[in-house]
């Protein structure tokens, strides 16, 4: 158990270290791609807090992401850079506020109804920016001057933006890892397994779920902010249900119930996408990249029911047979 536990931290430590060193030898294309994946990883972790940790399958995470992004662009002045110190919190608070509203209503439902209600609220936000002039309609809006913090942080520089994103990736992981082992996190785990028992023990579960939902929305807003600043552009597609669906696939692919699963899933998903889209490898067939991606994901889920996180365990079993710890020893 201890070995496995430290292995987990070693793995994630190496991933973060690798990501920190990556800009040393990255092309500008690679830098942009990995920054994008790191943002998706933050977003996927925000969804993991709901789906994997609390058992709330939210199908509207893209809305909070999009709101964070749109707020970042809409609140930026047109002819100069905004100050990070207020723009970033504004994005997070706006996304969290919408999550609080959506959560307050949707958490009264359960199961499939919850999935559908969160989807409906996300589509509502999508159509507001898609069909009104508020957010520039289908064309989206450009962000001409990226936010800065005095002369310390200038996000117009791709490398600075990359490290800025990296810091928030690590921060999100550490924050959620600590949160999940706290009183609050343990209650969420209890709610996931048996909400009725939690109520019978004396937990009012609704406020806990709402707090988790709002926190998740805020983190998604952070990811949206980073994405808008990275691309210098927002459009309604950021809020579409395709992204919400892709995020669910990421965390399932990586392994539900594990924070690092969300990070692994984000990387695996985007790499697979890039792989099947590549015309050098697939020629004309690369037009049908979704087919290849879909089959690969189905194969992964079928062969690795615990996701990519479960891969070492599966390999270990194949090589050495099952471990005694599966039968006895314990998570304290």
């Amino acid at each position: 158990m201890d070995k496995l536990f430290s292995g987990k931290f070693l793995f994630i430590g190496l991933v973060f270290a690798g990501l920190a060193l990556y800009p040393l030898f990255a092309s500008s294309y690679g830098l942009d791609l990995v920054a994008k994946i790191m943002i998706y990883a933050i977003l996927a972790m925000s969804l993991e807090l709901l789906v994997g940790s609390t058992g709330l399958v939210c199908f509207g995470q893209a809305a909070f992401f999009g709101i964070g992004a749109y707020i970042a662009v809409m609140l930026s002045p047109e002819s100069e850079s905004a100050n990070l110190l207020w723009l970033l919190p504004a994005s997070i608070v706006a996304a969290a506020a919408y999550a609080l509203f959506v959560g307050a209503l949707s958490l009264r439902t359960k199961g499939v109804y919850f999935i559908m209600v969160t989807l409906a609220f996300a589509q509502m936000a999508y159509y507001v920016v898609h069909d009104t002039k508020l957010g520039g309609g289908t064309d989206g809006i450009y962000l001409y001057f990226k936010p800065i913090l005095g002369s310390v942080i200038d996000l117009n520089d791709a490398k600075v933006l990359y490290f800025f994103t990296w810091v928030f990736l690590v921060w999100t992981f550490v924050f959620l890892a600590i949160l999940l082992r706290s009183h609050f996190g343990r209650v969420l785990a209890g709610i996931r397994i048996n909400e009725q028992r939690m109520r019978a023990s004396g937990f009012s579960t609704y406020p806990y779920k709402l707090a988790a939902f709002t926190t998740s929305g805020g983190i998604a807003g952070l990811a949206g902010f980073l994405f808008a600043v990275k691309d210098g552009f927002v459009n309604p597609e950021m809020m579409s249900w395709h992204l919400s669906g892709a995020l669910l696939i990421m965390i399932i692919l990586g392994g539900l119930g594990h924070l690092r699963g969300a990070i692994i899933g984000a990387f695996a998903f985007v790499f697979l996408q890039e792989f099947f889209k590549s015309s050098e490898i697939f020629g004309a067939f690369s037009k049908h990249w979704q087919l290849g991606l879909g089959f690969t994901i189905i194969a992964c889920v079928a062969l690795l029911p615990k996701g990519l996180v479960g891969l070492p365990e599966v390999l270990h079993k194949r090589l050495y047979g099952s471990r005694p710890r599966d039968a006895q020893v314990v998570l304290k």
């Binding site: 600590i178 209650v187 937990f203 304290k332």
Partner: peptide, 28 residues
């Protein structure tokens, strides 16, 4: 809660008497 230890099953139930969800940095 089948995935928790016997101890954690009881500890989590007991936690209902001392709910401090806002202390997010403390190990439960």
């Amino acid at each position: 809660f089948p995935d928790f230890s016997v101890f954690e099953n009881c500890r989590l139930a007991a936690q209902a008497q001392v709910q401090r969800p806002w202390v997010w940095w403390n190990d439960a």
